[in-house]
């Protein structure tokens, strides 16, 4: 139960914090750009979106989101949440309060994961809103007439989330390790770009920073049908997550100097 309490306390810390605004604005950014192009240049979009408007719109959105924006937001969020303690010099108060090291480590972890969850929810909401709002302004669009493929959307969200676990665990550890938040962000972005360059490599399914894009690529087509619920890189993602979570926790637990 103490973990629940510690996590509630963590959520108060994130009120109006940079991480909160990043997730809110980050999730709204792309849907807003879509909304603008739909309303300002409908002529370019009518034909493309006529048959399967939601599939085309959501597919395009998730493609861009998975490749770069999503991992980048996760890298930033993982840095910003522990940064609240570094910036305010509050680690010492956290460690001097009656919380076990496990509660401290996992409550922050849970608050990062819930922030990523919030990002996912808001991104979906804003994507759907962009379509609906565009249709209300230009009724020639068919968003309101055609159904959303909820099954695809839920699967996409689920697989993306699993694919991100590896990055979350690595970035969280880095962010706890380095006081200067530029370090984990720099390492994270470097690895993300490297992963995108390495995309054609046959072992890309073992490179954590490529996982979100691989999950998107596997979300449609024949590959997805035969791969079952989890693709190989998603299983790797879970394994990385377990290993780095353990490493991060051990690092905090056995550190000689805290706060």
């Amino acid at each position: 139960m103490s973990l629940v309490i510690a996590t509630r306390a963590e959520l108060i810390k994130n009120k109006r914090s940079a991480a909160f605004w990043l997730c809110l604005i980050g999730s709204a950014f792309m849907p807003f750009i879509f909304f603008l192009t739909f309303t300002l240049r409908p002529d370019l979009n009518y034909a493309r979106l006529a048959a399967e408007p939601w599939q085309a719109h959501l597919g395009k959105g998730w493609q861009n989101f998975s490749a770069f924006l999503l991992p980048m937001f996760v890298i930033l969020t993982c840095s910003l949440i522990p940064q609240v303690e570094y910036k305010n010099n509050t680690w010492k108060q956290v460690f001097a309060s009656p919380l076990s090291i496990g509660d401290i480590f996992f409550s922050k972890y849970l608050s990062i994961i819930s922030m990523v969850f919030f990002l996912f929810v808001m991104f979906n909401v804003f994507m759907l809103l962009a379509g609906v709002a565009a249709d209300l302004i230009h009724p020639k669009y068919t968003f309101l007439e055609k159904a959303v493929d909820w099954k695809w959307l839920i699967k996409m969200n689920f697989k993306s989330f699993i694919s991100l676990l590896a990055i979350i665990s690595i970035q969280y550890w880095l962010s706890l390790r380095f006081r200067n938040f530029i370090v984990p962000i720099g390492i994270g972005l470097g690895l993300l770009v490297s992963a995108l360059i390495l995309m054609p490599w046959e072992h890309i399914n073992k490179v954590p920073y490529a996982f979100p894009l691989l999950s998107f690529a596997g979300s449609g087509g024949p590959e997805a049908a035969k791969s079952g619920l989890l693709a190989s890189h998603e299983i790797y993602s879970i394994l990385y997550f377990l290993v780095f979570t353990l490493l991060g926790f051990a690092d905090m637990r056995f550190r000689k100097e805290r706060g």
Binding site: I5, A6, R8, A9, I12, K13, K15, R16, S17, V84, N88, N89, T90, K92, Q93, A96, S97, P98, L99, G259
Partner: peptide
């Protein structure tokens, strides 16, 4: 209760919110 070196406060929160965090922790 402790206060080590500079005050440990979340500067983006109000006095009450800062206390609410520790009110939860100390139950």
């Amino acid at each position: 209760g402790s206060l080590i070196e500079q005050p440990s406060l979340y500067l983006h929160l109000t006095a009450k919110e800062n206390l609410e965090i520790y009110q939860l922790v100390y139950k």
